[in-house]
Amino acid sequence: MITGFAASIVEAWQELRVHRVRVLMSLIGVGVAVCALTLVVGFGNMMQKGLADSYEQQGGRAATYTLSIYPSETEMSDSEAEKIRTALGATAERFGINHISAYGQTETTVPGPAGTVNASMYVVDPDFNVMRRLSVDHGRWFTSGDAANLSPAVVADETFLSDYGIDPDSLPATIELSGSPARTATVIGSVPSAGYMEYGEIYVLNGQETEFASDAEAVTEFEMWVPPEVGEELRKQVANDLRRQLPGFDVSADRTDFAADIDETLGPVKNVLLVISILILFMGMLGLLNISLVTIQQRIREIGIRRSFGATSRRIFFSVMMESVVATTIAGAVGVLIAVLVLKAPLVSEFMFDGASAPQVPITAVIVGMLVSIGVGALAGLIPAIVATRVRIIDAIRA
């Protein structure tokens, strides 16, 4: 069976070589259509991955819920902040929540060697970088042991390090803090700059924010990352458990990640491009079908002779069908190769991803392109193959 299949492919290739001028233009159309379809699928998946990474850095991974916890009638004090941290730890352990972090933001200043350095300060916990996909380019991120350091740990972005005059390769490095007596902090790692912020950014551990800004208020918002399929039910249970542990506190929980917005952002564009690609593919298939029908009419004598030597209808059908499939597979492979080269081009990374590292070309796009090219060949070869099976020996004699 395998030998017969291989022989059919070789035979189909020989026929294509004989009729290459007739099928060339139609195969160009098929190749262009497959290339366009692969580009649509590839661009869509790459943009979805890039957009998902961007959204997760801004709002957390799916599903991230923000817990707002603050006293109902009094100001937040250090003792109440400690109560919140204790309650959150107990709740996370009770419900098996592996990732939970404080999230507070304020503006601060740091005395630098060449003058005051302004910075946006984020108050977080060690889990924050996993929840927000923060990549540390130099040094390291926080660990649970950093809370006990005499010199508070800091993770800064590239803009802050540049403004302060610190070479990222020299980390860890010491910076001065405002206030009296003189204090220092240790920059243990650096992260990429957001690019759209006016000032640099620094990340400090929850509970140490007053070391960097004496007027900083205790964090009242916390983020938890949970599986999306149980997120809504878990949100209610966590909120109720915190209310039980913290009487006199207002507790609310809402989903704040942007995962649901990705399909809304890319969906219409992907659908329009996909429809255009399918139309191009359909036109290419019609062209190949017309060429195949004309070719079959000119091969009646050849097919009749084959029938006279004992070729069965099944053999004739499969042979003609394979000619079309082999042709579109070759054209599709060329189209897919061109699409992959385009997707991997440096211009794509610079234009589509703002110079950031582009996601890998999805294997899904390659598989879809090849399957579609094979399917088009099968559809385009179906009618000519049926016509070929109805050729009689007498038709060959008359031809």
Results as ranks from 00 to 15, higher is better:
R392A: 13
V136P: 01
V391T: 09
V40Q: 03
V387H: 10
A380V: 04
V334A: 10
L343V: 06
L242S: 14
V325L: 05
K83M: 11
T143N: 08
I175W: 03
S178L: 12
I100K: 06
V10M: 09
G89D: 08
V154I: 15
V387T: 09
T109V: 12
P113S: 09
S180T: 15
A218W: 15
A33T: 07
R140I: 03
Q245W: 03
V136S: 01
L51P: 07
E93K: 10
Y199N: 14
D169V: 14
M1G: 15
W225M: 11
M322E: 08
G112R: 02
P172H: 04
I175L: 10
V238Y: 07
W13K: 02
H138F: 14
F142I: 14
V18M: 08
T174D: 07
H19R: 12
G115M: 06
F317T: 02
K49N: 13
A388P: 05
A385L: 00
F282K: 07
D53T: 12
H19I: 13
L382R: 01
E82G: 03
A216R: 07
E198W: 08
R307V: 08
N98L: 04
A365P: 00
A218M: 14
R132L: 12
I175C: 03
F95C: 13
V40L: 05
L281Q: 12
V336H: 00
G44R: 00
T328F: 04
P228G: 11
E229R: 04
R306F: 01
G284C: 11
S292K: 00
P152D: 08
A259N: 14
T66M: 14
I397G: 09
T256R: 12
V123R: 02
E211I: 05
A173V: 11
Q208W: 02
